[in-house]
Amino acid sequence: MTAAASGVVLLTMAAITVFLIYRAVPALRGNAANFFTEQRWDADGTPPRFGIAAAFYFTVLTSAIAIVLAVPVAVGVALFINYYAPRRLSSGLGYMVELLAAVPSIVYGLWGFTFLAPHLTGLVSWLDRWFGWTIVLRYRPESAPNNYSPLTAGIVLAIMILPIICSISREVFQRVPREQIEAAQALGAYRWETIRMAVLPLGRAGVISASILGLGRALGETLAVTMLLSTAFAINIHFTETGGVTFASIIALKYGEAGPTGTGALIAAGLCLFLLTLAVNFAANVIVRRNKVA
């Protein structure tokens, strides 16, 4: 039974991969540009010229922003709920965080588009003032009038992946043995010192896997990102400027109008996203194994 079930999973995986490759190859053959370095996406032109450079860049960038913002907040919320909040508050808070996961991504997209982006001007000007020297955070209002930028998309993604990271972290922290916590407390540790010595080291592997799950979701998120990024097939190193496209958003945007070569090209992009998430999961496994406490 179990062998058959896992066989089905493996077969499905293999079938998906074969299908993607089978449909992608002809389009890739006809591509006049280098698939990996070309930023433009003109798959149905003559000759077709398309590449994933821009999509790869923005996918990784928005997801990275999301992870950097979400992980500390999620871990902080998890610690607060588990160790600081009074009991009555903590169950309510936990429930609220889980509700965030129930909000459909189209709603996040709408909210980001109509509310968050227009309200971010203050933040990006502030970032420009203090961190403009990093170049990536430099802000020129004329090139980002609406803040439909990778930064905005990253913030929305961060909120979307927060619940999963938070709830998994909470569970991991709950499994830290009581003896460990008592050991620290018996040495006269304050709460934060106890958390740092007993809770975080034992929870580290779990927090990493939680983050990777969140990252996987951010990489593949389509709707909200498609709504927030105005399609621009050019790598822009400024996080706060308009533009950008991700694997998922190219596919969502272009699928309806794609001809035969265009469809193949989009499938190739899908294959790349598939490989990217696969690589992330593999890396996560390695990291978790290395961080496991003996």
Binding site: Q180, E182, A183, A186, G188, Y190, M197, L202
Partner: peptide, 29 residues
């Protein structure tokens, strides 16, 4: 608790080095 130490039923060293286990108490003090 800083003046009255405690040893528990199940050995419960921290998942850290031997050195850090011992140094933890003095450090938090």
């Amino acid at each position: 608790r800083r003046r009255i130490g405690m040893v528990f039923q199940k050995p419960n060293p921290f998942p850290k080095s031997i050195y850090d286990n011992i140094a933890y108490g003095p450090r938090v003090n």
